[in-house]
Simulated scan of single mutants.
Amino acid sequence: MKKLNHTLAIGFFALSMSTIYGCNLKVENTKNKPLIAQVIPAEDEKPAKQYVKIALLLDTSNSMDGLINQAKAQLWDIVNEFTYAKCGNEARPSLQIALYEYGNDDISAREGYIRQVIGFSSDLDEISEKLFSLTTNGGEEFCGQVINNSLKQLDWGKNADDLKMIFIAGNEPFTQGRLDYKDATSQAKEKDVIVNTIFCGNYDQGVGSKWKNGAELTGGEYMAIDHNRQVVHVATPYDDIIIQLNSKLNKTYVSYGYAGARKMAVQAEQDVNAYEMNESVALKRAVSKSSKLYNNSSWDLVDAAEDEEFRVSELRKEDLPKELQAKSVKEIEKYIDDKKVERAKIQSEIQELNKKREAYIAKNQKEEKGELESALLRAIKTQAAKKNYKWDKK
């Protein structure tokens, strides 16, 4: 049938004497300057935290299993890439990912065969869980409509310095559906959202079916990939150690609240999913878990305690794991601190081993990176540079 595969702040501008905020704007030195023309923003007018927002729109019609598999694997490449990203003001941006599927007969025709799988989220385990839940079935692929839905349904924010990107992947003509893709991309441009298109198939065929034009209208990138290309694993002497450290890392998580036990189970399940797909995917996920982008403060006491407003004394006894319910507040705080130290040590070890792993792969890898991985990272770096993002691997 169809040969498809899933590839997948507002900067505050004042007068010339103003202090300026934003990722790609440097703070101006106002020392010794007259205060007459100076505008000082109120506390609530300061731009919010910097965000990178990525919406993945994946065709899940027949024959797109390869695309989905690449998306499952490349999620961790995206996360690991942004581990090193910095704004122009040296701040680390927060990463949020949303996921849509389209072109699947299992979705109502009244919805245009389109479904929001998950809205913008920084919960990496949940995003992985949703990706692994995707299945394929034949349907109509309405590219303009799914882009339009993602623009209307997702909270893209109004920060001009946020990096906002859509990646839409598929292999049917970009022109299908009642909603013209040109109207959808026009709306994207108004929201400062860049649309990147990934055609699963021949480059020239994608050009002829308007995938290239769909990207060009917002300044995005057009890419053609082999969605059936298999993820290649290059074994290194550091792999087994990293996998073992990942298991130790999981034991530093201390669940709390009504969702704690379930979320901890999801964490373990996604480790298994990654490993069963490919050992390299499991390794990349372990590296992601050793970064600051992997945060589980909603259910893990160690991450939650990083918030200066967090108070152990305000937790209900029934919200704590059984091993902590009989302990005093001071004992619980010490327990959390000990786990924090242990986790930091393990994460540091994983990071150091991963540097050696990457160096080994660079020296011994004969195969190129995965098709989707290369396409995504190339587009991300190109567009991030325009917002004055930089990559610091020190």
Score class of each variant (00 low, 15 high):
346 I>F: 04
12 F>W: 15
384 A>L: 01
55 A>E: 01
244 Q>V: 10
43 E>K: 14
98 A>C: 06
165 M>K: 02
282 A>Q: 02
383 Q>H: 15
371 E>K: 03
173 P>W: 03
234 V>L: 15
55 A>D: 04
176 Q>S: 09
305 A>I: 08
215 A>F: 04
229 R>C: 06
94 S>T: 09
126 E>I: 14
327 K>G: 00
293 L>I: 06
131 L>P: 04
232 V>Q: 11
29 N>D: 14
90 E>S: 13
227 H>E: 07
203 Y>E: 13
80 N>C: 08
287 V>W: 03
74 Q>M: 07
115 R>G: 02
245 L>R: 11
187 Q>C: 02
304 A>V: 09
50 Q>K: 13
299 W>D: 10
239 D>V: 05
35 L>V: 13
134 L>T: 01
227 H>M: 02
158 K>S: 11
370 G>V: 06
239 D>A: 07
210 K>F: 11
178 R>N: 14
302 V>D: 03
352 E>R: 01
20 I>V: 15
325 Q>D: 09
358 E>C: 00
199 F>A: 08
171 N>Q: 04
29 N>P: 03
331 E>Q: 11
285 R>C: 04
18 S>Q: 08
111 E>W: 08
180 D>F: 01
252 T>P: 02
346 I>P: 01
252 T>G: 03
270 Q>A: 05
350 I>S: 04
357 R>L: 00
343 R>D: 00
120 F>C: 06
300 D>A: 07
265 A>M: 09
306 E>Q: 14
87 C>L: 06
295 N>D: 15
254 V>G: 01
190 E>V: 13
